[in-house]
Design a protein around this nucleic acid. Sequence first.
DNA 1: ATAGTGGGTTCCCTAAAGCAACTCTCTGTT
DNA 2: AACAGAGAGTTGCTTTAGGGAACCCACTAT
Lengths: 164, 164
Amino acid sequence: MQRTSLGDMACSLARSLDVAGEWWTPLIVRNVWFGARRFEEIQRDLGLSRKVLADRLRTLLAEGILERRPYQEHPVRHKYRLTPKGRELMQAFFALMAWGDRWTAEVAGPPMVLCHERCGEIVHGEVTCSSCGEPLRAEETRIARGPGARVGRGSRYVEHLPAP
Amino acid sequence: MQRTSLGDMACSLARSLDVAGEWWTPLIVRNVWFGARRFEEIQRDLGLSRKVLADRLRTLLAEGILERRPYQEHPVRHKYRLTPKGRELMQAFFALMAWGDRWTAEVAGPPMVLCHERCGEIVHGEVTCSSCGEPLRAEETRIARGPGARVGRGSRYVEHLPAP
DNA sequence: ATAGTGGGTTCCCTAAAGCAACTCTCTGTT
DNA sequence: AACAGAGAGTTGCTTTAGGGAACCCACTAT
């Protein structure tokens, strides 16, 4: 497994990618979310090698993004499900899906859309500010040192930033 | 470059990952966002090989996520910047950063935090519904066939779903 | 004249992904 | 009873992608 350089683990994005950014991992999570529960099913649907799938499932279980329960004994067979941690990860992927729809969809429009059961509408994910609720645009957002920042290590940018 | 299987390009997530999901790409985008503009700077900061960086920058330019402008001639030197497409991608990464903070941060807390200049607060990205504004939780969201769905191809799930 | 810098490219080597075949334990069919 | 097939992996081999280091080229500074 490719781990990002240690110095960069300072950033939450690097840590997220480290556990959920490997090849195939987001697609596996997405497929489990929308209904694939068995090894064979995921493998057939995504067309990745069984070896890599076995590997990724191990990681996802170890990270607590997926969990599995036996659905039969002799031989024991498991079904995979998202944990709460996995469901929140999927939520972040909704934002990525929205970006893909907006910027890379083919002329025909997005092949799949999301339906939000709470409001009943066809929707997409928006990334908004946890405080004011407005869209959290990159050009209106700056980085600042957090409680876990280790001065003298990590990124050389963060050290010159105002404390929160 | 690893491209996902064609059949899966039906999904926007696969398409997003195809252009922005390669190793290092999100971290490069993040670094350009928060101030790294020159090749050397990005390379030093992330510690990736120059070859891979040159490769990723080429892809990001070709995809229109980054743009570059010469800041000197003889020899010509460029500085990289995010395009609007790139800034919106960064926005999606904010959601991933929030997930990393919530689920994988060390005991000391997140090393970096975001400051939203519009409201002046320390914030994080939330993924919300474009229609009702509520958090777009995975367990309250279903997938449905979109305008670009090609029946008979792509995922076998989407074909059994209600039309929007 | 020499060293250094910025932005790459080239070469070699290792690590990870793809592919195919194999295992093992059941279940269903003839 | 014999055989085929499914489900969930594991093992081995080949190809590809990534890391490291060296090299190049056009300047600039000392």
